[in-house]
Write a protein that binds this DNA or RNA. Structure first.
Lengths: 188, 188
DNA sequence: GTCTATAGTGCGATAGAC
DNA sequence: GTCTATCGCACTATAGAC
């Protein structure tokens, strides 16, 4: 056994989400989180650049999976078909995280700072997808449009998937939204 | 002449943008801004809830104009046509603000906190458009999809309009993007 | 208009593992 | 000895409370 308890990062994450649910994000100090995890505030900032990031760190793997799916889609596929493949590929990560995602969603929904952070993470994802579309040969403007539209569908599909009464799978929801967006955008 | 110099709000805004351009957002303290405007930091926080907001306050009128345009579009118009009317209506506000908008854009692009704030303002706008679409009788999901797609086009059109080499007008750019999005989204 | 709590940073000390 | 995770302390600026 080492000098310290293992998995400081995981303990900080768990302590943070628990405390945010219990007493709210703003009412929880970094010192509170660290204390519950058996650490100090100084150590918290070794793992996370700021307080919000404790709820968001770890999205890099998802982003990479979506970019990979986009790049490995058939070369002849239209931009939006490649984006659809990326959206679908995200489903692998959504196994049994529904309860976790619901608690996290409630915390984020209750705080403007956290909603801001969520939006910028999605914007980064959109940028990565757009870059990948350009790699596939898409024009810059089309790449950005398709990526942004894909992010809209991705975000709404995930939200709907974790909604309390929802029965359908993530992939089904995403496909439905993609088709509806196609129908809507066509009639300008 | 009154006891105080007039237009404290305008002076704070101008001082803030100037300082952000000169030395960067993070390197500028609220005390710096207030001093240049001939005021105190305490007064700054009477006008703006936080430091970032000095660059964003004032978008309510634009939002109201877009919502109004959406609601007064022909009742038989499709959701995306109403959204297109809203996007077009924003053009009234984009008279001779290009130089201001460029300086503001550069400041925001250089700072993650400011990009976050910009995104949440656009999310609020999207929510307002979606609510208005529901008022017009659209289904909730379609309303959100159309509003989010509209925000994508609105944001990209504005960015392109203030781009250095751009010659076309805002409305032309927005219409082009709307059509391109329609083409892309159709091929899923 | 002052006073205070908290976020976040820089630098260095410590205590083990190896 | 070196390496590394953690802690301690001093400090600034934002933001809100009184």
């Amino acid at each position: 056994m080492g000098r310290w308890e293992p998995d400081a990062l995981g303990r900080l994450r768990a302590a943070a989400l628990d405390l945010f649910v219990e007493r709210g994000y703003e009412q929880t100090t970094v010192a509170d989180i660290a204390e519950r995890a058996g650490l100090t505030a100084r150590t918290f900032f070794r793992y996370f650049p700021d307080k919000r990031e404790v709820l968001f760190q770890g999205s890099e793997r998802l982003q990479q999976a979506m970019v990979d799916a986009l790049l490995t889609a058939p070369p002849k596929a239209a931009a939006m078909e490649a984006v659809a493949a990326a959206i679908e590929s995200a489903g692998q990560y959504f196994g049994d995280i529904r309860e976790f995602a619901r608690r996290r969603r409630d915390v984020i929904a209750a705080n403007a700072e956290l909603r801001e952070r969520e939006l910028i993470k999605l914007a980064a994802l959109s940028g990565a997808l757009a870059d990948a579309l350009v790699q596939r040969g898409a024009a810059a403007v089309d790449a950005r449009l398709a990526a942004e539209a894909g992010i809209v569908v991705f975000r709404m599909a995930f939200e709907q998937w974790i909604a309390d009464q929802e029965r359908r799978g993530y992939g089904t929801i995403a496909n439905d939204l993609l088709r509806r967006l196609g129908d809507l955008a066509q009639r300008v």
